[in-house]
Design a protein around this nucleic acid. Sequence first.
DNA 1: AATGAATGAGCCTTCATTCAT
DNA 2: GATGAATGAAGGCTCATTCAT
Lengths: 208, 208, 208, 208
Amino acid sequence: MDEKLKKLDTAKLDGIRNSALEEFGRNSYEKASTNNIVKNAGISKGLLFHYFVNKRGLYDYLEKFVFQKMVDVILEETDFDETDIFNRIKQIAVIKMGVLARYPGIETFSKAIYNDKSIADMKEIVDEMVPDLYRNIYTKNIDTSRFKDGLDFDKAIKIIQWTIEKYGEEQIDHAKKTGTVLHYSKIVSGIDPYIDILRKAFCKKGEM
Amino acid sequence: MDEKLKKLDTAKLDGIRNSALEEFGRNSYEKASTNNIVKNAGISKGLLFHYFVNKRGLYDYLEKFVFQKMVDVILEETDFDETDIFNRIKQIAVIKMGVLARYPGIETFSKAIYNDKSIADMKEIVDEMVPDLYRNIYTKNIDTSRFKDGLDFDKAIKIIQWTIEKYGEEQIDHAKKTGTVLHYSKIVSGIDPYIDILRKAFCKKGEM
Amino acid sequence: MDEKLKKLDTAKLDGIRNSALEEFGRNSYEKASTNNIVKNAGISKGLLFHYFVNKRGLYDYLEKFVFQKMVDVILEETDFDETDIFNRIKQIAVIKMGVLARYPGIETFSKAIYNDKSIADMKEIVDEMVPDLYRNIYTKNIDTSRFKDGLDFDKAIKIIQWTIEKYGEEQIDHAKKTGTVLHYSKIVSGIDPYIDILRKAFCKKGEM
Amino acid sequence: MDEKLKKLDTAKLDGIRNSALEEFGRNSYEKASTNNIVKNAGISKGLLFHYFVNKRGLYDYLEKFVFQKMVDVILEETDFDETDIFNRIKQIAVIKMGVLARYPGIETFSKAIYNDKSIADMKEIVDEMVPDLYRNIYTKNIDTSRFKDGLDFDKAIKIIQWTIEKYGEEQIDHAKKTGTVLHYSKIVSGIDPYIDILRKAFCKKGEM
DNA sequence: AATGAATGAGCCTTCATTCAT
DNA sequence: GATGAATGAAGGCTCATTCAT
């Protein structure tokens, strides 16, 4: 599959990707229709299967692609001179949202990824990349001296991440319910009160 | 739909519910088969649609049922003499897991709910019940004097809840990946270190 | 499958059978199209699968049906007062061709059955019925005293059968090649010279 | 097609032939995949169709090739000093099996030929070659004086051939059903009792 | 000559839903 | 109320064949 993919014309691959991303984003895996995907991508039925073998193959490819894109952009755009963990985390959250905004269709697709059992299938990529990634982005050049003595650093980081993630999910859910369009800038700024609470909670008094 | 449902024999309704719960738990909404549901419930195709109008109607009913069951049990079993918010939250988490364990089929179904976009569809029930519910269970008779002065109580509660939820989700994911069976007692006790961190973070020194 | 089949209206079953028999007769199993079958039978796609589960199920049913029909008619129409083995064999050949002629589509289908690996799948029916059948029709009330002394009776019967079968196959092939329509009466009479040869070869001089 | 074929490099043609023979042997005509054929032959999709026009063209070529090979070997290896028709027929049967054994892939393919309606399509080759062939191999230098007076020689030969063929087919079917591997030597020797019966039946007493 | 990307009709099968009984 | 036969659109996927390079 990968060999054939490499030879695929970039523009065409892009078209397929966008079409598929949108379809999978809009529907669950089962309900997503390869018919719609090829129709919107302007290619023939056979070609999709020529390149991706089957529906699952396409889905897996998309999953890897989105994940890899996210990783690439994060590593590229993160400012590692920022030593404050809270600012760092916010920065990364902003970058993530930027990726989602730049790639049409990715947002809902990413959401769908999280909501799918297929996470287990991503094991290989995630196992390879995530530890490295997170070791870097959430710890590299972080000034840990500001934290209160005796605080379990790793668990604190997790709480911060979880808080940001859940906040984001809540905003997305709310937008869905009310039919509102999300403004990423608002999400980002909305996190601030939570971060303030956590900063007060985890940092030494003089270091905030 | 609801009128007809009221006339439905309890035993028969029970059979349908269990069969449907199991089917929806085992599969995603689309893959779940009404054929299997009626077969296992021992009723005819037509009857299901007579009572539940269509597949989505059945699903929505189930969602409400499970949610309501959860609410009922929580309200019934929560010890409102427990004034410590951390203990209260843990208590409720334990109760929730108890419900999932007590109702065969509900567990996987509830998981499936979380893994589905259908959350948006639960709008009406959630909007009706949740605010009331949460106002009660996480605030009623809670001793807020232990919290540090100036702490935004609502947001702190949210952080605690989110932490517990995310921890649980992480355990479920991990179990899925490794094929391990989850022991709820272990999940519950595993949360303790996080709760300790948050307790230290949010409570006055003498009050922990 | 069988339960549902029993409830099927005879006329409709007949229509499906004829349509399927014709399609399977005209094409190999793989090439035969269930689309054509339902179209010619005037039923919906779903109904076919409702009754026969899948394509193979339909095929197997047809196989059994044709075989059973053949067996029934042979047992019913064979004149067991005819003690001469040659006449008996000819008689049965005539009966067989009568069945093929009476059931439109069966002829080519039966041919297809013989030309298919599926014979292995018919094992169960064949194993049950054939031994009984042939023990009856080729030996019951046959006067073996006419045979030359020392002749292996079973093998001689086989040679006679094989000769008749091969002769028939040759005629069918020839008809196919030349596009001629087969007249069963001609086939039957064409066998006579071969039977004469074999009669002279296997029977005592005075007994022919 | 034939012109182009002549220019085809022998080694490449051989590769295609073996690959195709194997694929058609393993599957029915419809199920046989040109994809598999080109893959195993190490050639491109386009090339196959360049030389053989379409799938049917390839199949027909193979049929002719196998048949011609059989004819060649039979004419070459038959011992025309053997004047006894029974020995001659057995000899040829042995030679046939030798061809099947010597050409990997041919065996299963030839079996498939028998199991196919395609016999009708072989019309042209068979019509051209068979009469000549059989006139030669079953009559050339045969001592007909041993036969009983008044016996229709041609029909008797046919009965002998048919007996041998049917016996072979029966063995192959039985092997298929039981999953046994066929030993050609056993087939050959298994025919003997039938030949003995026919010899006694068709030959003068002193001439056996 | 040689390639393999591209096509699209066609395949079998599933399934929520309807409706005559 | 209760049944389940009947529907037919839609699904993923295969594959011989074509054609630009």
